[in-house]
Design a protein around this nucleic acid. Structure first.
Lengths: 197, 197
DNA sequence: AGCACATCTTATCATAGGTCAATGCATACC
DNA sequence: GGTATGCATTGACCTATGATAAGATGTGCT
């Protein structure tokens, strides 16, 4: 099995050489999930992070009334995980399932350490990704605190034009914290304005 | 100058011994900010993280219309920072100022490395804090996506009863993503219900 | 081809929360 | 002691978004 995206990621973002990547390959496991199948359910202990080699995943929680709140999408070269659950070995309160048939690379809690032994830069590179992740989360919180549905949508389209095209609209609505109907209205209004000008 | 909270934090959460802590002390710098003074403004490069020894800080952004969105409060033993700005040495888009007169310990980007040299567990402990932080952010996003003002307020009170008592109500409203008037109404409704029962 | 099911749209109505303005309290300041 | 300032509350009104329900469109499955 060849994993071109995983390879690229570790080389470009992880700072590894081709040879170092080859050393890692024997240890890695992959997992395929079909559309709508789960990688993680509430109550499970999340034993791995999932690198998306090909496909789309979603990471979400359910509130008391059963409403889904989508926290994150992941397309190629993204990593999703309930980090808390992996790290602390506690039951997760989240779900991960596949939006499309997806091929993932399973990364266990020792993955970073193992790779760092091969190339010590990797730890640093990994920290960069973590810090960037936190930045994104702060940015997302800012938007949720202060911006209208319309602005949130525009930001989303701007930030993730690719995801726009691959996930159904009602999931985007969930990611934005609005109903599908509201998103439909927002889009209609935007289309109208655009047409006028 | 003695820093009992900083001491406790590094020993209890960082896993250091008293002796190791003593080794660190010579390198640390503190900074005092009066109420309403700034530690960071938009456009600055955030050169330090700030550990709160005594007092309360707030971390916020301003949107285009000048509305403040409070991302975080920090009381004793918390660390605030625009991590992205510290890490990547880029201008921040955030503000940090003092809600009360506050004594902080300034931690530069090498702090973790320096301490890790003295006690190698520290890196791990630090990662635990980071992971916990991410967990909190996810939880916050879930609430903002799916919960009413009332539920968000109740969660806040439950999670941070101490902060409740130390910051003005309009700041809590900002943290919750609602107006002070709305928060006042939510509180009124809750008080009424409580009285009935 | 035809049916079942998903998704998206549209319309109507309901409501949480925003906006604006006035009032009442504290507390700091002169 | 009096005045100014910041904060919380309240009321009247408004608006964005939610809820519900009914089509419209599309797409996979048999």
């Amino acid at each position: 099995m060849t994993l071109p995206n995983f390879n690229k990621h570790l080389i470009e973002k992880g700072g590894l050489s081709e040879e170092e990547f080859a050393q890692i390959m024997p240890f890695i496991k992959t997992k395929t999930v079909k559309k709508n199948e789960f990688l993680l359910k509430q109550g499970d202990i999340c034993s791995h992070s999932f690198f998306v080699e090909q496909g789309v995943l979603r990471f979400y929680s359910l509130n008391e009334e059963g409403k889904e709140n989508i926290l994150q999408f992941a397309t190629e070269k993204w990593i999703v995980s309930d980090r808390g659950s992996v790290f602390f070995q506690e039951p997760s309160t989240y779900y991960i399932d596949a939006v499309e048939d997806t091929l993932t690379v399973m990364l266990d809690e020792h993955f970073v350490n193992k790779v760092a032994k091969i190339n010590s830069n990797f730890r640093k590179q990994n920290e960069i990704l973590l810090q960037n992740h936190i930045r994104h989360l702060y940015n997302r919180i800012s938007l949720l605190l202060g911006a209208s549905a319309r602005v949130r949508y525009l930001e989303f389209v701007n930030m993730y034009p690719d995801i726009m095209l691959r996930v159904p609209q009602w999931m985007i609505a969930s990611y934005l914290g609005i109903t599908p109907e509201s998103l439909s209205r927002v889009r209609k209004a935007l289309a109208k304005e655009h047409f006028k000008s």
